[in-house]
Amino acid sequence: QDPGKPAAAAAPNVESIDILKQNQAERTRDQPGNNAPTWRIVKEGTQNYSSLPYKEAGILIQPKAQFPGQEHATTAGEAWRRYRNGPLITFGGWLLIAALAALLAIYVVKGPARNSIPPTGRLIERFTPTERFVHWSVAISFSLLGLSGLVMAFGRHVLMPLFGHTLFGWLAYLCKNIHNFVGPVFLVSTVVFFAVYVRDNLPGKSDLHWLSRLGGVLGKDKHASSGRFNAGEKIWFWGGLTVLGLVVSASGFVLDKLVPGMPYLRGDMQVAHVIHLIGAVLFIAGAFGHIYMGTLGSEGAYKGMREGYVDDAWAMEHHDLWYEQIQRGDIPRIRSREERPETGAPAKA
């Protein structure tokens, strides 16, 4: 590899343990001409002297690093490159494809979900305009981020061969800028979303039951009872929106250099990137499932999120405990009335 480089261990008359402790002056005394201690420093990625005031200017070679699952440490940049281009992109890509395939399989097997109880015509306001606005802010910003992110991560392999260099370059440039600026929008939306939705997503007793029956897939009756949000949704809320949202946002803010006072060393960026990419892939995969459930997987759900109202029948079937609360009057049928006093009755009543 390094032509002419004396192997460090070949030094005569020096015990192998001490050899690693010797500094250059000691080594020169023992073995003139052997500069191994100096080169060791270089390879350790130490910050050395450089008159340039820029951070990391004094590092000759990045320090060694080893990402989980890697066999041995290599130069951090190389380790990162292998990790990203290796497991992250490969497994990530396959994971997403697998997720899509699974959904497709479910759809093929089960076909579009149909409600068993016929609509009553009576409507319940499931999501207030605020709630809907917040949801769609999250959804749209997420979609932009996800799509643009995917272009950056996989476009080179998937799109570039189709579009050619120049066109793909423009697309990627667009995506990158969309991604960089939409990221903060996503975080803000997510925080508001959390505040708006958290009350009804607090775990409850029924969730265990729901979960034990896997939301009705197991057991006798078709539907496991649940409150306003079932445990599956709560998992999406907590695991997806909250945890993954935070993870990609936090790591994204680092990548965007928006965290004040951070040095933004390359090592930080690599770690942030790895976290970001893992988070993003899981998040996107989750979102596939969520979107499926919100549209094809559950008739009427999408309408509820688009227009705000669901039929009593739908509520009864999917969220029986919540429906009971409404029936009892614990929760008003229409919560946004105060804001829209002129709407005396549900539009489609």
């Binding site: 500094n23 250059q24 100096t38 002297y49 450089s50």
Partner: peptide, 10 residues
């Protein structure tokens, strides 16, 4: 970049 800046012999 200077390694071991100012350290005699190094």
């Amino acid at each position: 970049v200077t390694i071991n800046d100012g350290v005699i012999g190094q």
